[in-house]
Design a protein around this nucleic acid. Structure first.
Lengths: 202, 202
DNA sequence: TTCGTAAGCGTACACCTTACGCCTACGAAG
DNA sequence: CTTCGTAGGCGTAAGGTGTACGCTTACGAA
């Protein structure tokens, strides 16, 4: 009966994500996103109640791109693939990393990914406290690795910045930064996750 | 010759931290922090160039409280203690977690902690790429665990919220949330870190 | 006592989120 | 085909934010 919606929440999220990718996270505001959609600022509030909810939508859109089909193979293989898919999805939108870190917990896609990971863990024979610890360790590593990859002292622009530090105060850090420069990000992520998996006995 | 400074950067950071602890991160602004110090808004800019730099100061203040004396024991014991000290320091100021995640890489205290961890790893016989991966995995876990502990679906308020979810879509997540409720945060952190250490062969 | 330097602050501006109320597009009912 | 109720879209405005600029003033050294 009433007038139908002209936009979906996904379209709104896509517009916000476009602004992030093009002009950076700092450029995101209710005005710029509304402008991206060709509508007035206040019209956005017909769809989202809040700026925070808009950010949530963006996070969910990025995480929705993660394929949740569990590949064939042992638990280690399965978990490795699931984790790496998150890395890939996020690496395509580096600007949203700060948003991911603070809004991930409210994203349905994030929860679905968690459910999938838990299914693999359960399938591998884990239950009770063991499963809780394993799950939280994996979660911690995956999002911690994303944090480190984008804000870390040994990755991306951080590595170069670190090399310029006083080597007398940070001798090993400087040396390690030099070593780190030769390892591509995916390899770092995968080898780090392999360590976690080994610790889990999978 | 000129008029001396009346405040130190540490005092500024402490004032900002006090605002965070009392009124939450959202309450932090140049005005409120200046008010906390009993000075005008613009006076703050004599000390920091930026809001971002103010946040950096807060992060560094929190991390400065981490004791960097390496305890006696094997590498696992040493790293476990160093990691847990970060957890303790941060858990006293939950409001700064989002700041930690985004500004950690510019904090000198954070770098000093990293140098200390690297020294332990070196002492344990790690070098080259192996050391890079080990370091980044530890870094990823520690800050990832902080992220998860404060924004996670299985911790703090998140656990209860999750239990209220549709169990038909997230059956294992709901079950795991119930299991998680009985494990105290320090134990989760320590056992998760133990998994990482085991994976590292330490 | 005088003077130069930098501390501290008042004002102002651009921009942000968002509350409120008007106009209008639309689909269903008559 | 007309009418009407609902909700979509937007203009305006208020309150809060970061910060540029320039004035006043406290202080230490000469």
């Amino acid at each position: 009966m009433p007038r139908p919606r002209s936009l979906t929440l996904t379209q709104i999220a896509a517009a916000a994500l476009a602004v992030v990718d093009r002009d950076g996270l700092a450029a995101v505001s209710m005005r710029t996103v509304a402008g991206e959609l060709g509508m007035g600022t206040m019209s956005l509030y017909r769809y989202v109640s809040d700026r925070s909810q808009l950010e949530e939508l963006v996070v969910d859109l990025v995480l929705r791109a993660v394929d949740l089909h569990v590949p064939r193979g042992g638990p280690a293989k399965r978990l490795g693939v699931l984790a790496d898919r998150v890395r890939v999805a996020v690496s395509g939108h580096p600007g949203v990393v700060p948003l991911l870190l603070t809004h991930r917990h409210r994203s349905p896609s994030s929860r679905r990914w968690g459910e999938t990971v838990l299914a693999v863990l359960t399938d591998a024979g884990l239950t009770g406290e063991q499963r809780v610890i394993a799950f939280r360790t994996i979660l911690g590593y995956v999002f911690g690795a994303l944090q480190v990859a984008h804000f870390g002292p040994l990755s991306g622009p951080g590595t170069a910045a670190l090399a310029a530090l006083p080597p007398e105060e940070f001798p090993i850090l400087a040396e390690t930064a030099a070593d780190a420069a030769t390892i591509p990000p995916e390899e770092e992520f995968r080898r780090g996750f392999a360590i976690v998996l080994r610790g889990l006995g999978l």
